[in-house]
Amino acid sequence: MSTPETQEITGHGDISVGVAGAGASGDGSASATRITPGNALRPEDIALEVRTGLARPTEDVAEYALRLGDDALILAQRLGHWISRAPELEEDVALGNIALDQLGHARSFLSYAAGAWDKTEDDLAYFRREHEFRSAHLFEQPNGDFAVTIARQFVVSYYQFELYRRLTQSTDATLAAIAAKAVKEVDYHRDHSTQWVLRLAGGTDESRRRMIHGFKLIWPYVGELFVDDELTTRLTQAGAAVEPSSLRADFDRLTGEVFQEAELEVPDVPAAPGGGRRGQHSEHLGYVLAEMQVLAREHPGASW
């Protein structure tokens, strides 16, 4: 699978980020909530294709889509908590937008994955148990203060950007289409989190201290994102997926540029072992799921 060339760098936003890569796709306002009639790929479209047999993932592709969908779903659940609690109204809107984008990606991946097992996105989101979730530990990390949330978002958005950018070339047409829509949105998330890393690192003594602490808390969970396993190796050989380890160099280079501009060190902390892809989670996920699933499980079989 070929790696598409990084497009021309165009910075945007009202402060100059001066970072190669941030805003690379040029349309920083691209978002799931923006109405783009005609070309917006909706989760409902994917569900329809799956139901009518136009698209059906292989078992391997479904497993892979489950991982990406769970990552985005758990993150959306975390980010949604900020709405009405953010440091300023603009951030209620921004974090809400990012949560909505992630939820949209989750719904697309899960709707697709569900096709392999004759299920729906909601069956997968609400009626799987903790050990059946395939999200990496990073996504379930608690929001913490705003700096922790930004540190987590910064890592996620650079990882997802590199992943989706390559996944647009997938031999699986549905994965490629979901990635093509998602990469534009994630590019905006990169810009948002980069601007905040620079602001917090270069703002006050307190914000700098908190930003450094936030990265320290988040960094142990970075390694898991780039671990290959049999599934990703098989799918990569088939041209459908991306080997996670192949994203690491670009991730390190691009995040490194931001760290340099922010005069931050890449945190020197031991890596946690992870295990989310095998259904082994941290202590946090159970609470996230308990809250997310409670109502749906009170009314099994009901439609909403």
Partner: peptide, 16 residues
Amino acid sequence: RAPSLKRKAILMAKVQ
């Protein structure tokens, strides 16, 4: 706690 992902998305958009 929104009981479906579609409702969750709509509610998030609304509060936003």
